[in-house]
């Protein structure tokens, strides 16, 4: 048959997918590092997370640029079009997860050496689930696995449950000890960052379903 038609498009699409997965790995790690810096009161690590976000943004911009170029020059159709459209959306979701990691690192920096009002248990647990969502999302994305994507999206409920628990607990602490309000608010922000990050991770599953089926389905209820 010789050269298959549209080889350039497909090679480039695959390259973009690799870039997405790499970016996903980076933001997933950033999330873990940010929460660890908070838990271990490691300001250097927190600063490193903040600095690294520049790199995430740069990578995201590059993927966007390459996607747009591909859209303009190759005019993909059908599943190729969906893959490219999904890539453009995914890259935003991943970049936002990176922003949330940066937000958490900022809190860690702000709190400094200040003793924590409570031991951090549910927050790291949340972070772990969000990470798992991102990692499994990328895994499903690479293997084009619809079931894995759906299973991953279901983890969002766990994140929401943990978020409510953290919220209730921090609220109670603030009511009991008004002096803790500043720190509690910061910790609440961390939980919110994580809850938002989980929503973006859920989007990974939604976009993967779109690529595979051509249907947009809201998994974030």
């Amino acid at each position: 048959m010789g050269t298959p038609p549209r080889r350039t498009l497909h090679v480039e699409l695959e390259a973009l997918q690799d870039e997405i997965v790499r970016l996903g790995g980076t933001v997933s790690a950033a999330l873990e590092r940010a929460v660890r810096s908070l838990k271990e009161r490691d300001r250097t690590l927190a600063q490193a997370v903040i600095d690294a976000d520049v790199e995430v943004n740069r990578a995201a911009l590059e993927i966007e640029q390459r996607s747009l170029t591909l859209l303009a020059t190759q005019q993909p159709m059908a599943s190729d079009l969906r893959a490219l459209g999904a890539t453009l959306k995914l890259v935003t979701d991943l970049e936002r997860i990176g922003d949330h990691a940066k937000g958490i690192a900022r809190v860690a920096l702000r709190l400094g050496d200040e003793p924590l009002i409570k031991p951090l248990i549910d927050v790291p647990r949340m972070a772990e689930v969000v990470r798992e969502m991102v990692d499994r999302g990328l895994q499903a994305f690479m293997s084009r696995d619809q079931d894995a994507a759906l299973a991953m999206a279901a983890l969002d409920d766990e994140v929401d449950r943990l978020y409510r628990a953290v919220f209730d607990e921090l609220l109670q602490i603030m009511i009991d000890r008004p002096g803790t309000i500043t720190q509690a608010t910061h910790l609440l922000m961390v939980a919110t960052h994580l809850e938002r990050a989980a929503d973006h991770a859920t989007n990974l599953a939604e976009w993967l379903l779109y690529v595979l089926t051509g249907e947009r389905r809201e998994l974030n209820d």
């Binding site: 298959p4 038609p5 599943s79």
Partner: peptide
């Protein structure tokens, strides 16, 4: 159709 549109 998919195969035709995506050049496969």
């Amino acid at each position: 159709t998919e195969a035709y549109l995506t050049g496969r």
